[in-house]
Amino acid sequence: MAYKGKVHKFGADINTDEIIPARYLNTIDKAELAKHCMEDADKHFASKVKHGDIIVAGKNFGCGSSREHAPVSIKAVGVSCVIAESFARIFFRNCINIGLPIIESKEASERIKAGDIVSVDTAGGIIKDLTTKESFKIEKYPAFMQKIISAGGLMAHIGKK
């Protein structure tokens, strides 16, 4: 898959309470969750993000609560993929399970700046920062996860089985 968008940058240890605060967890309506995406990390994120934009963050992105509402809100607000130095594990598996593309890259996380235009080619295994002309290699997902991703998520994967 290929994605291209403007980068919104976040720091280390962004937790799921910041991604979707608990005060909005009394609904599972995706459009409603999208309205409050990243609200406690950046109050105006949901209003300024454009379809296809990319989140780039530091280490341990998505730590804390297991709430799947966090990746659901990121996907629903139109973010095409998330690049981080590392991801917290429940957030990571939630993304694989619901089909939100995530990429672990320390180098990309450090080098890419807010506002850069970035393209991501998962099949080709490369991230290109079109603003700075830098590029970064993407490690392939293990075969087990690739099966879930290519099925379109966990439910589609078990449906096939």
């Binding site: 804390g64 609560s65 297991s66 709430r67 799947e68 429940i90 598996r93 939630n94 399970n97 619901i98 998520g153 966990l154 439910m155 078990i158």
Partner: peptide, 27 residues
């Protein structure tokens, strides 16, 4: 497995116990 991050609590009884997401719970 529990769709709650603090599911790891039950390790105190010598169980393997971990938090997962809602889709994991559905599956």
């Amino acid at each position: 497995v529990g769709a709650d991050s603090h599911t790891c609590t039950y390790g105190a009884l010598g169980a393997f116990s971990t938090g997962v997401g809602s889709t994991d719970l559905a599956a």
